[in-house]
């Protein structure tokens, strides 16, 4: 799918785009800056992208390329001023902090470090998410998700007594329990061994299919690229490439020549 349906930038810097209910995230001419005045440094340059529902996209790029910033913008973690960024149909550009918090409640976050409270059991950590929005029995919901993730026997364990892979699965359960339509994951497998990492991404892939949720994942882990429908490469804050999985394999296989070479 190509992402070139851009419309002209209006005078106040925001961009008007038509809503498309099939798209989880729509981005047009997004610019982002750190700092102010003399120290102002542009981190993202004119990014335009669409992510349809149910897609798993991996965002790669060298460190400092802006991929984490990109993820945090989609996650409604920073206020935005230029371009357009719609998450589940809601425009984030121009939102204040309080409105952003509302958007975040519909997003599942998974971090490299699991960030679980050591003082809470696996179940309680997941319940913290249910308490934000949920109703009904929060424990039942938490246990259901943990069971889905193969942690049925571990619901009342504290993080200290869980393995790295188990902790990450608790964190994933916490991200999933409210059945978000968008999941943002930052290096979810970096702290895990090969098998645990594989288990975790397989789970995520399965969930994306079953619940038709969109997953955006920043990773350096080449072992898990195969789960992605699409791979986006950022370099120095600019969109370097946006390829489907099959394309990516072809272009990055040294046995094949880069098709672009023939275009010249």
């Amino acid at each position: 799918m190509e992402a070139n349906g851009a419309k002209p930038v209006t005078q106040n810097g925001s961009v008007a785009i038509a809503d498309n209910p099939d798209l989880a995230v729509q981005i047009r001419h997004l610019n982002y800056y750190f700092g102010q005045g003399e120290l102002r440094k542009q981190a993202l340059f004119d990014i335009s992208l669409d992510f349809p529902r149910g897609q798993i996209a991996i965002i790669t790029g060298p460190s400092g390329s802006g991929k984490t910033t990109f993820l945090s913008l989609i996650g409604a973690l920073r206020t935005l001023h230029e371009g357009s960024l719609k998450v589940m149909g809601r425009e984030l550009v121009g939102m204040n902090n309080s409105q952003l918090v509302g958007v975040r409640r519909g997003i599942g976050f998974i971090f490299q470090a699991h960030n679980l409270f050591e003082s809470l059991t696996a179940c309680q950590n997941v319940e913290m998410a249910v308490e934000l929005t949920g109703s009904g029995s929060k424990r039942a919901q938490a246990i259901a998700v943990l069971e889905q993730l193969g942690l049925g026997q571990r619901v009342d364990y504290k993080p200290n007594s869980l393995s790295g892979g188990q902790k990450q699965r608790v964190a994933i359960a916490r991200a999933l329990v409210n059945q978000p339509q968008l999941i943002l994951a930052d290096e979810p497998t970096a702290a895990l061994d090969k098998q645990s990492g594989r288990d975790v991404v397989n789970l995520m892939q399965q969930l994306a299919r079953e619940q038709k949720c969109t997953i955006l994942m920043v990773t350096h882990d080449n072992r898990i690229l195969d789960v992605a429908d699409r791979i986006i490469n950022l370099v120095d804050g600019r969109l370097e490439s946006d390829t489907s999985m099959t394309e990516f394999v072809t272009t990055h296989d040294p046995k094949n020549l880069d098709p672009r070479m023939f275009m010249l």
Binding site: R104, R105, I107, F109, F111, A113, N115, F117, L132
Partner: peptide, 11 residues
């Protein structure tokens, strides 16, 4: 980190 995560989650 945990508090920041809670904030990210929407607390």
């Amino acid at each position: 980190a945990e508090y920041a995560t809670l904030k990210a989650m929407g607390y």
